[in-house]
Computed example of a mutant assay.
Amino acid sequence: MNNPQVNYETAAEYVYRAIKKDIFTKKLKAGQRLPEAAIAKELQVSRTPVREALRKLANEGLVIITPNAGARLVSPSLQEINDAFELRNYLEQLAIAKAIHKITPLQICRLEEAIEEEERIFERKDLEDYLRINIQFHHIIAEATGNSLLVEYVDNVLSRIYVFMVFYESFFDFDTNPSLDEHRELVKAFKLRDKKLAQKLMEHHILHSAEALKVE
Rank of each mutant, 00 (worst) to 15 (best):
M1R: 14
P4M: 03
V6R: 13
E9P: 07
E13F: 11
R17W: 11
R17C: 05
A18G: 02
I19P: 00
G31F: 04
E36Q: 14
A38Y: 03
K41T: 00
E42I: 00
E42V: 02
E42N: 04
V45A: 11
V45I: 15
R47G: 07
V50H: 01
V50R: 01
L54F: 03
L54T: 00
R55S: 06
R55V: 06
L57M: 07
N59Y: 12
E60H: 05
G61T: 10
V63P: 02
I65A: 04
T66P: 01
P67G: 02
N68W: 12
G70Q: 06
G70M: 05
R72L: 00
P76Q: 09
I81F: 14
N82S: 14
N82W: 15
N82D: 15
D83N: 12
A84D: 14
N89H: 11
Y90N: 08
L94Y: 08
A95T: 01
K98H: 08
I100F: 08
K102N: 09
I103A: 03
T104V: 00
L106E: 08
E112V: 09
E112T: 09
E113V: 04
A114N: 13
E118G: 05
E119V: 10
I121R: 06
E123I: 06
R124K: 08
E128L: 10
D129Y: 11
R132P: 01
N134F: 11
H138V: 09
H139Y: 10
I140G: 03
I141L: 02
A144Y: 04
T145G: 02
S148T: 10
L150E: 02
V154N: 00
D155W: 03
N156G: 13
N156A: 14
N156Q: 15
I161R: 09
M165S: 13
F171R: 13
T176C: 04
N177P: 00
S179D: 14
S179L: 14
S179V: 14
D181V: 10
E182P: 12
R184H: 14
R184I: 05
F190A: 01
D194L: 03
D194I: 02
K196I: 10
K196L: 09
K196P: 08
A198T: 07
A198W: 10
Q199P: 07
Q199F: 03
M202Q: 07
E203L: 07
H204D: 15
I206A: 10
S209N: 15
L213K: 13
